[in-house]
Every structure is written in structure tokens, then in C-alpha cells.
Design a binder for these strands. Structure first.
Length: 913
RNA sequence: GCAGAGGUAGCGAAGCGGUCAAACGCGUAAGGCUUAGGACCUUAUGGCUCAGGCCUUCGUGGGUUCAAAUCCCACCCUCUGCACCA
């Protein structure tokens, strides 16, 4: 009994591949090139199975293209820009138990841990080495000569990034401005999602400030709904909170909560002086609504949250449940004083006359209920509402549009301002409450630029995207893409060449490095001083500057770039689609000529393990290194076939046994190969036809990165067809050998080690990647033969069914094939189904009166689906007689039927005795 | 909120107008093999039916069609991204 033992053979083949230099391609103008990459990873931990999902998918593509005759470049590098490496190092240094335990479990010793904590560079180098080791062990076909590390560890690469950013700046695509971020005042740093204990996903929301004048003072009401300003009946302040009169730079005296003045300071609205005052003294005084000049009273309300906005709110009772309820409370207290304040309805929603009241009745007047009602009302009114005659000049305008119109009006009247606020609470890991801060002099890359977007749109439309739906996602995201901050003050990275206290952040320094791969191994021969903008201009733009000398040395790099670029395929998981991939595309279209724009991208989902995404942070990741203790490389590579597209796919080790089984099946057939002979039978045509279809579908699926489907036909279907052929009496050695060779080729990209091994068992001395991909032979397709074999299989099913019904062991089975007249009618009907599947129509066209026609047309669901031939059916049954006898262990007779009503084409009559 | 994807038998997952009671894998059950277990092989696995038949199913509710898991509309639920965060 043969057993598949992957460990025994995998190292051997990895060494053979390495020695062959197969994966270190050189320029070869006789060959078409193919350049494929995966985004560079952060070496801040061990590579695990979740990562591998993406990389194996790329490696499979690289091997597939090599076998298809392409000169394939598949390099890999590493990313250390930004925070992750330093963050990891800091966590270890500060004794973070979770992190340390995970690493220890994965085999890091105390000495190494100590160094990790002290030296982020050591940490990065350590993990880069483990990545390389694990990549090799899993059989990745990388060209390691071109590896580099972005960015601060590699001055040559930094020069490249500087070149990129000077060019972007010279194109006017880098600007400086201010920008709101969530900020930790304790650590003095922006708070990303990963830095938060609470408030993940919270981002600054812009509140409109509308200035209501009251004598010398301004009441700056903060609101999310400026479109309701026509419906204001009063101003709310909270009598239980300390307020102050803050003198702003403009000289205006704003009445705001004490809290609010710090917020304003953070948002570049410095408060010059500030006097505490008794807010209660303003109650019942009048203020002026700037939109229409109407006077509205200032009233007390304890639901006004001192932590949000300015502490001054405008009251629109007809459109805000809290305001309505607040006014109600006051009216109950003092109906004379407040009785004449009437809610004003300014937004109409079709079919929703009493939207607010209904919502309040439905949700109640508890705090929670009012919040729900608020959400409900806001949503309906904003999306479906239209302003009415109470809204002055805005009458008839949709609420959605009115918002900006009203803001413009307020600006004209110098009654507008804005501030940022967090809707939910954000807490930093250090425990401090996060707040909004507007950063000054931040550098931006102008992804909002219309012309730039138009170019990118053109490229996306042209590009091949697997799977298809991702293209739509790219285009949609491009539409709302805004300017992006390109630099930060912390972490690692290349300084902005013109403002060196800012470091270029990771998503911005990783947009065009694929071009750098083409020269990465050569540029190191230069002195760093020689590596300047002119050099890059010459290589990448063919622009020869004054100081360019030593042309011959440069020429080699230029040739590499010209040969390998553009990038033909980039593979990644889906989370990079809406950020990295867009930046990658945008930078390419602006920095390179159109013939150097990327050709295709392939996106995959995640690997789930027991329903959860496999990731470092979830702690459910299995490192490749560990997994290789139990499984072989090819067995782990099977996980690349977990899915076809962007859906997340469940992976279980159980699939591995299915793989093992097929491999052992193949090994067994190879073992008995000498027992096969020369005889050719009808069934050969069936196997050849199946093989052709398998080649066709596997090839197509490989091309589209649909590996789940590819492995299904290349491995599972192919082996089971071969087993059927042999069990049904097939013995044609030449055919079987050709079949085996073909399926080894078809499986090689996914399972390179075992297929190379088995290929050598067949007496070959070449590696599979030195052979060529199987060619689909259309002439081998024999649909009638395939159909008739299916008829036999279906008949066996039928017989089984009957036997189980009548509950007796058969002694003899007689199978009656329909006569050729019936086949003729059958095929006539089949031909008609190509034009119409409407039974009445078929009947009308055919105009044949025959009980067989009636039978065929009885059920439109069961119309003939394929062409059948009487002689083939008869021959097939005769040839497979032994196969049928074997299944039932009794005598089988095949006869021709002339009159039997039951025998139909594709459905012979069956008599069981 | 905006955008994208998805809901299929006990589970994973194909199918994306007719050959669909739904591939394939796993699980489960019976039989074979074996001293026994494992592995392996065969068969069964929505319901009913003692001659190959019938009935009900593909998130929910409608619709289009001779025909819908597949197309259209509405609703419910799940996942993902949304920017200084890699």
C-alpha cells in the first residue's frame, strides 16, 4: 500500500528548484514577461496561515504563468514604515503579557524578547528572516535577489520615495492644510482605531455653529441640522452647568460652556479671554435668529449636554423630539409664560403628517426613547423631506440640498461657524478620553483632484479585476476619495524632503515600489550619493538630465524597468481594495506613462477558522512554522483553494485528507501501470473527452484565480474519472499515462512538490515548470459519448432504485435499448429545444403525431437535454456490461427493443428477474 | 450613515433561467474488508411510494416566465471597508 508522505520529498524539491535558478528570471526578449506581486507585509510577528492564503494564491499564479511560457518575475519585500514595528517593540518593552506570551509560545526565547523590546530594528530583521524561512518551506517561488525594506532601514529606497514625492509636489498634488483628528491629550498623538480602548470607528463630525445675537453677546448654537434653522422657537442652555463669556479672535463674545473653550482651542479657534458668568441671568432674554431676524427666547433645559458642542443648542420642537418634550415640560410648569411658544413645522414628508408625534408615541419620552425617536425623525426628514412655506426662501427645496444652501446664507450674514465633535466616547489605551484636535500645517496628497480621478477612472475601467465586482467597489470609492494626509510626526519613515520633521506614512510610501523591484538588485552597486532624482528620472521616465553620466551602468537598470514594467498582476486580500489599491492606481497613472500602468489585480477574502477571521489580533492564528510540524507544504497550500472570490472561506484540516486520498489514488495507479495494455475501447473516447474538458475548465479557472474550482476539476474530478475508466474496464496504457501526466501538470501550481515527485515516477527527468501547460483539444470532445456514459450511470441508479423497492436479489437484468426510430424522433425534439422550450410551440413546428412525441413533450422540465445516438448507446451498454454486472452481481443482458413502450432514448427499459 | 459582498440540505461549499431534491467535501447510518479498531471500498442520508413515480424545499413576502435557488421589487439578517489606521 502506497502512502503519501509529504515531508520526505518537499525539501528535496525545494533544493532542486533553488539550484535551477528557475525563479530568478533575467531579461529575455524572446519570452513574454509576467510581473506579479503581493503587497509587502509588516515583519512584526510570524507569518501565519491567514497570510499564506494570499501568498499561495500569488505563487500559484506565478507557477501557472511560468508553465504557460511566460518569463515570470515574482519578488517579495518588507514594510517597516510607520508604527507597527515600533509599537510591537514598545509593547514588549513595557511588558505586555499577551504579546509576550504569544511570541514565547511561537518559539521566541527570552534573550530575543529582550532585544525586541530594546531594538525595533532587530525585531524587524528577526521576523524578516522568519518570513523568508517560512516562505521557502512552503515552496514560494520568489526571486529573493530583489528584496528591499521600506523605508528607514534602506536609504536607497528612501531616495526613491523622495523622488516620488518631489515629483508629486512639482505636479501640484501635495498641499498643506489643517485637518481634524481624534487626539489623545495625554500622549499627544492622533488616536487610530487600534489605539483605542473604546470608541472604535468614531471620527470627528462637523457641527454647524449658528450665531444667535443677544445684546453684546453671541449664543453659538451647535447643530447637526442647520436646515431646520427656520423652525427655531427658542435657544436652550443648561442652567446646571458653568458657562463663560469667551472673547474670540474676531472680538465676538461667545457664551459657551467652560468645557467648550478647550475644545475650541484645540480646533484653532483660540479664546482670548474668558469670564465666568451666571448663565441663569440670561434665561427668558431674547436672542435673534440670524436667518430671519426673528426674536427667540433663551430657555433652560437640563437635557443639553455640556460635553457636546458649545453647550448652546437651538430648539426646533416640531422636528426634534428632545426639543418638543423640553418645551412641553416648561409649558406644564408655566403655561402663561410659555404657552405662546408654538412649534413651527418647516419640513414636510410625503404621507407622514404627524411624523414627530407618531415617533414620540412609538418610542416614548424616556431619554432612550427620545434618542430613538430623534434618529428616526432625522433620517426620514433628511432623506425624504422637503422644506415648506415656513422656510422662507427655501420653500420647496429638499432637506438634503437645503442644508448647504442655508449654510451659504448664514455665511453671507456672518453668522456661521463650525466645530468638530465626537458623537461617541473615545478612550485611549492610556485611559485618557480622546478629543478632536485640528492639526495645522498637515501635508496632504490631493486625491480629490478631479483630473487625477478621471485618469484613475480610465485606468480602473481598463484594468482586469478578479473577481469582477471589485471593480465597482474601486470606482465607487474613487468617487468619494478625499485628500489624504501623507505624513506624520512619529514612527519610522522617509522624511518629506522639503519639510524633514514630517515622515511619509506607510500607505503613501507603498504605492509605486513595484517599479523599484525592477532595479532593486542593481541600484545597490551605486554609491548612495549617485542615487538622486536625475537617476530615477532617467530610469523611469527616460528623461536625461544634465548631470547624467555613466550611461552604460544606468542603461542596465533602464532596460530592466522597460522589460518588466508594467505590473501584470497584483494579488491581495480585500481590506486593501478601498485604500492601498486606489493609491497604487492613482500614483501610477500620474507618475508613469500609460503603457506602464498596472494590468490586473486579484482580490481574495479571508481565511476563517471556525467562523472567525484568522488573524494575529484574534489569537487564533496558526503560524506556518508550527503548521509545518504537522502538515506538508503542499497540504498547507491546499488552503489557497478554500475560495474563489472575495467571500471569506472556512478552512478546515479535514480537506487535507481529501487531498491525501487523491494523491494516493494516483500513486496506486502509477504502481500498477505496467498491468495496462494496448487495447483501445469506446470508453477511451469518453476519458479523452473528459480530460479535454478538465483541461479547459482548470485553465480558465486558474486564469481567473478561481482556485477552488480549478482544484475541483484538476484533482477531484480528474481522479474520479480515471478511477471510473479503470473500474469500467479501461486498460489503454498510453492514454492512462498521458492522462496522469496531464493532471500532474494541472495540479502543479497548487501542489508543486508532490506533482514534481510523481512526475519523476513516470520516468521524467524534467521539473514540471520546464514543461508546458496542457493544451485544450476541442476535437477530443465527444458529447454523445459522454451523454451515453451518463445514461449508463443513470440506468444503474434506476436499477438500484427498483431493486430496493422490490426487495429481492436479482438473478438476471435485461436492459432494452430503444429502436432507432425513437432516437430519430428524440433528436428531432432535442434540435427543436434549441429554438424554443415551449412544448406547444415544439409540437406546432414538428407536426408529428406520435405517442413518443407526446411522451417527450409531456413535461417541459424533462425535455431532451442532449443529443443521443442509438448505436453509441447500444455499444456503450455492451462495453460496460461487466461494470453493470459487477454492481449487481448478476447476469446482465443488453437487447434491442423494437416495440417496447418503455424503452426510450437515454432511458432504456429494465427488466429484473 | 455611505459603499461593497452575502444568506443554498446536519456542517463547509458549488450552481446564478430549463439535465436541480441541488455537484464536491465533511459528518451520520448500514454493509464489505479486518482478530478488533483505524484506514479503505460500496450504498444510503427532505418526505411519501413494494418497477424507475409523486410531493415539499435554496433568508421572508410579492412579481415576471410555459419554466426561478437562478431575473425584478420590497423587507429581515450577516460580513467588510470608510483615511492618518496598517
Amino acid at each position: 500500500m502506497v502512502k503519501y508522505e509529504p515531508k520526505a520529498i518537499e525539501k528535496k524539491w525545494q533544493d532542486i528548484w533553488a539550484a535551477s535558478k528557475l525563479f530568478e528570471p533575467e531579461i529575455n526578449s524572446a519570452l513574454k514577461k509576467f510581473f506579479i506581486t503581493v503587497p509587502i507585509p509588516y515583519p512584526d510577528g510570524f507569518i501565519h496561515l491567514g497570510h499564506l492564503y494570499t501568498w499561495t494564491r500569488a505563487d500559484i499564479y506565478a507557477r501557472f504563468m511560468r508553465m504557460n511560457g511566460y518569463n515570470v518575475l515574482f519578488p517579495q519585500s518588507f514594510h517597516v514604515t510607520g508604527g507597527p514595528i515600533i509599537g510591537m517593540s514598545n509593547r514588549i518593552n513595557s511588558g505586555d503579557e499577551k504579546t509576550i506570551n504569544v511570541l514565547k509560545e511561537q518559539g521566541v526565547n527570552d534573550k530575543e524578547l529582550g532585544l525586541f523590546g530594546k531594538n525595533p530594528k532587530f525585531l524587524a530583521e528577526y521576523f524578516i528572516n522568519t518570513f523568508k524561512r517560512d516562505f521557502a518551506d512552503i515552496g514560494m517561488s520568489f526571486d529573493w535577489r530583489r528584496t528591499f525594506v521600506t523605508t528607514s532601514l534602506e536609504p536607497y529606497f528612501s531616495r526613491f520615495i523622495e523622488w516620488q514625492f518631489r515629483r508629486l509636489r512639482s505636479l501640484g498634488l501635495i498641499t498643506q492644510g489643517s485637518h481634524p483628528v481624534v487626539w489623545c491629550p495625554h500622549e499627544n498623538t492622533p488616536l487610530g482605531d487600534h489605539d483605542r480602548l473604546a470608541g472604535e470607528g468614531e471620527s470627528p463630525v462637523m457641527f454647524t455653529i449658528i450665531k444667535f445675537k443677544c445684546g453684546e453677546y453671541v449664543f453659538p448654537a451647535a447643530t447637526l441640522r442647520p436646515e431646520t434653522v427656520f423652525g427655531v422657537t427658542n435657544i436652550w442652555i443648561n442652567p446646571n452647568v458653568r458657562y463663560c463669556a469667551a472673547t474670540m479672535e474676531s472680538g465676538e463674545k461667545w457664551i459657551i460652556t467652560e468645557n467648550a473653550q478647550d475644545k475650541l482651542k484645540n480646533q484653532l479657534k483660540p479664546v482670548k479671554t474668558c469670564e465666568i458668568l451666571d448663565i441663569k441671568s440670561f434665561i427668558d432674554k431674547k436672542s435673534v435668529n440670524p436667518i430671519d431676524g426673528k426674536e427667540v427666547p433663551i430657555l433652560p433645559a437640563d437635557f443639553v449636554d455640556a460635553d457636546i458642542g458649545t453647550g448652546v443648542a437651538m430648539s426646533v420642537p416640531m422636528h426634534a423630539p428632545f426639543d418638543y418634550n423640553g418645551l412641553d415640560v416648561l409649558k406644564k410648569k408655566d403655561s402663561i409664560k410659555y404657552g405662546n411658544i408654538v412649534p413651527i413645522k418647516i419640513i414636510d414628508v410625503v404621507d407622514q403628517k404627524d411624523l414627530l408625534k407618531n415617533a414620540m408615541n412609538a418610542f416614548g419620552t424616556t431619554k432612550d426613547g427620545l434618542e430613538k425617536a430623534t434618529k428616526f425623525v432625522y433620517k426620514k426628514e433628511f432623506n425624504q423631506g422637503v422644506l415648506n412655506e415656513n422656510a422662507g426662501t427655501m420653500n420647496g427645496i429638499a432637506a438634503k440640498l437645503a442644508k448647504n444652501n442655508i449654510i451659504d446664507l448664514l455665511k453671507e450674514r456672518k453668522s456661521y461657524d463650525y466645530m468638530f465633535e465626537l458623537e461617541g466616547e473615545v478612550v485611549c489605551r492610556c485611559g485618557t478620553r480622546g478629543e478632536v484636535k485640528v492639526l495645522e500645517n498637515q501635508w496632504f496628497i490631493r486625491y480629490s483632484d478631479k483630473d487625477w480621478k478621471a485618469k484613475a477612472r480610465k485606468e480602473i475601467e481598463k484594468m482586469t479585476v478578479y473577481p469582477d465586482e471589485v471593480k465597482l467597489q474601486l470606482l465607487n470609492t474613487l468617487d468619494w476619495l478625499e485628500d489624504k494626509a501623507v505624513a506624520r510626526k512619529g514612527g519610522l519613515g522617509t522624511p518629506l524632503p522639503w519639510d524633514r520633521e514630517w515622515l511619509i506614512e506607510p500607505l503613501s510610501d507603498s504605492t509605486i515600489y513595484m517599479a523599484y523591484y525592477t532595479i532593486a538588485h542593481l541600484i545597490k552597486n551605486f554609491d548612495l550619493n549617485e542615487v538622486n532624482d536625475e537617476l530615477f528620472d532617467y530610469i523611469f521616465m527616460n528623461k536625461r538630465g544634465k548631470n547624467i553620466k555613466n550611461l552604460s551602468r544606468l542603461e542596465k537598470m533602464r532596460a530592466e524597468f522597460e522589460y518588466w514594467y508594467p505590473l501584470d498582476m497584483r494579488i491581495s486580500a480585500k481590506e486593501l481594495v478601498q485604500n492601498h489599491f486606489l493609491f497604487f492606481i492613482l500614483n501610477h497613472v500620474i507618475l508613469f506613462d500609460e503603457d506602464k500602468w498596472p494590468k490586473a489585480i486579484g482580490i481574495n477574502g479571508w481565511l476563517r477558522i471556525q467562523g472567525q477571521k484568522m488573524s494575529k489580533s484574534k489569537g487564533n492564528s496558526l503560524t506556518i512554522h508550527k503548521a509545518l510540524e504537522t502538515y506538508g507544504a503542499d497540504q498547507l497550500r491546499l488552503l489557497a483553494t478554500a475560495g474563489n472570490g472575495v467571500d471569506d472561506e472556512e478552512w478546515s484540516t479535514l480537506n487535507i485528507s481529501g487531498l491525501n486520498q487523491r494523491i494516493e489514488d494516483i500513486m496506486q495507479i502509477i504502481e500498477i501501470k505496467d498491468s495496462f495494455g494496448e487495447e483501445e475501447i469506446e470508453l477511451d473516447r469518453y476519458l479523452k473527452s473528459k480530460l479535454a474538458k478538465i483541461i479547459n475548465s482548470a485553465t480558465d479557472n486558474y486564469k481567473k484565480l478561481r482556485y477552488r474550482s480549478a482544484v475541483f476539476s484538476a484533482l477531484f474530478e480528474s481522479v474520479s474519472e480515471l478511477k471510473f475508466y479503470i473500474s469500467a474496464g479501461g486498460r489503454n496504457k498510453n492514454l492512462i499515462m498521458e492522462y496522469l501526466e496531464t493532471i500532474l501538470k494541472l495540479n502543479h501550481p497548487i501542489f508543486p512538490h508532490i506533482t514534481d515527485e510523481l512526475f519523476s515516477y513516470l520516468g521524467n527527468t524534467k521539473m514540471l515548470e520546464e514543461t508546458t501547460w496542457p493544451i485544450y483539444d476541442e476535437n477530443a470532445i465527444d458529447n454523445i459519448m459522454e451523454s451515453e456514459v451518463e445514461v449508463v450511470k443513470a440506468t444503474v441508479e434506476d436499477i438500484r432504485n427498483i431493486i430496493s423497492r422490490i426487495k429481492k436479489r436479482p438473478t438476471k437484468i435485461t436492459i432494452g435499448i430503444a429502436n432507432s426510430a425513437r432516437f430519430e424522433l428524440y433528436n428531432k425534439v432535442f434540435m427543436e429545444t434549441k429554438h424554443s422550450r415551449n412544448v406547444n410551440e415544439i409540437r406546432r413546428t414538428l407536426r408529428i403525431n406520435d405517442p413518443i412525441i407526446d411522451k417527450l413533450l409531456k413535461n417541459p422540465q424533462k425535455l431532451p437535454e442532449k443529443e443521443l445516438k442509438q448505436d453509441v448507446e447500444a455499444k456503450t451498454f455492451t462495453e460496460l456490461k461487466q461494470f453493470i454486472e459487477g454492481a449487481f452481481e448478476c447476469q446482465v443482458q443488453i437487447i434491442q427493443k423494437d416495440k417496447d413502450e418503455k424503452a426510450m432514448p437515454g432511458k432504456p427499459s429494465v427488466e429484473i428477474e
